[in-house]
């Protein structure tokens, strides 16, 4: 099946007075229909920026400086703002961390759902009205027929995020970009929202890019996962493999540093140091100063994504394995 979204060698730059910062470099991945791709990484790794670049909402002065973004085979990275706006909503739904930024406080949630559907779908107002109630029911809002008349502030945080999900899905987009959709929610509500998102993506055959810093959410929701570090993908592969059997030393360190829930450990595994700032990304592999398995090549030459068996990892260890073999 051909992918819904294909990102090829994406490069995002931020011109500043101290020179151009490269925020994303050589980012490539694709998402198939009904597939959930998790994108994880520490703050500043570029995961949210990847999402912003795809939906055409990069914060200026950031700009796409190279590569392509294809939605169902058509390039969308070079579209004008108004063309892109039509695609957002119709083809791409966006869900952000704070539901209040997406909802208009002056309209009822029903009006917002109806307007979105009428803008993007060839249906009559009466149908849209009926569907608005159906959507609220589908995302699990009790008494949907009455709540359709409510304003966003009348909903609690978890319910609001459900409304946002309904709003992002109601125009039946091919792709959903969800940026930390559960981070602002309490744990017990997080679980409900994640389950909902996943179910809807499956049912509707929607491709989903799920950006989060929470490995637990990814492990639970995603089919595949891309681990980002300093603006590049360090490792990408099936979620089970990346979590249980990471091939990139950074992924391994990241997984090991997550405190386990099922036992107490004497000492948590930690990665010393911090991710470099964009203005001071080391030569070669960006992870090399922190890497426990660093060798001479790592400080000189930057690794591309290499076949690491079950996953792709940007690490010279895997090139070595190949040449040795």
């Amino acid at each position: 099946m051909s992918p819904i979204l294909e990102v090829r060698d994406l490069r995002v730059e931020f011109p500043t007075r101290r020179g151009t910062l490269v925020a994303l470099d050589g980012v490539s991945f694709s998402i198939a229909p009904g597939e959930v791709l998790g994108v994880v990484g520490e703050s500043g790794a570029g995961k949210s920026m990847t999402g912003a670049a795809i939906i055409g909402l990069l914060e200026p002065p950031g700009r796409i400086a190279g590569g392509q973004i294809l939605l169902q085979g058509k390039r969308i990275d070079n579209l004008r703002y108004d063309q892109m706006r039509r695609i957002r909503g119709r083809e791409i739904g966006a869900i952000f961390q704070d539901p209040l930024t997406t909802l208009n406080p002056l309209y009822t949630v029903g009006d917002q759902l109806i307007e979105t559907m009428l803008t993007h779908l060839p249906i009559s107002p009466a149908v849209a009205k009926r569907r608005a109630v159906e959507w609220l029911e589908m995302v699990g809002i009790p008494a949907a027929a009455q709540r359709v008349q409510s304003y966003p502030h009348e909903f609690s945080g978890g319910m609001r995020q459900r409304v946002v999900i309904a709003l992002a899905l109601c125009a039946e987009p091919k792709l959903i970009v969800a940026d930390e959709p559960t981070t602002a929610l309490d744990v017990s509500i997080q679980a409900q929202v994640i389950a909902l998102l996943k179910r809807l993506a499956r049912e509707k055959g929607t491709a989903m890019m799920l950006v989060t810093h929470d490995m637990g959410v990814i492990a639970e929701t995603a089919d595949r996962v891309a681990v980002m570090y300093a603006g590049r993908i360090a490792e990408i592969g099936p979620v089970r493999e990346v979590v249980k059997n990471p091939q990139h030393p950074y992924t391994a360190g990241l997984m090991a540093s997550i405190p386990p829930l099922d036992r107490r450990v004497e000492r948590l595994a930690q990665i010393d140091g911090a991710m470099p700032r964009l203005s001071a990304i080391p030569q070669g592999c960006a992870y090399n100063p922190r890497c426990p398995r660093v060798f001479s090549r790592c400080a000189v030459e930057r690794p591309e994504l290499l076949d690491a068996g079950t996953t792709l990892a940007a690490c010279w260890l895997h090139a070595k394995a190949m040449t040795d073999a």
Partner: peptide, 12 residues
């Protein structure tokens, strides 16, 4: 609360 925590071991 414990039930709600997304657990790494439960992938999938």
């Amino acid at each position: 609360l414990m039930e709600a925590i997304p657990d790494m071991a439960m992938a999938g």
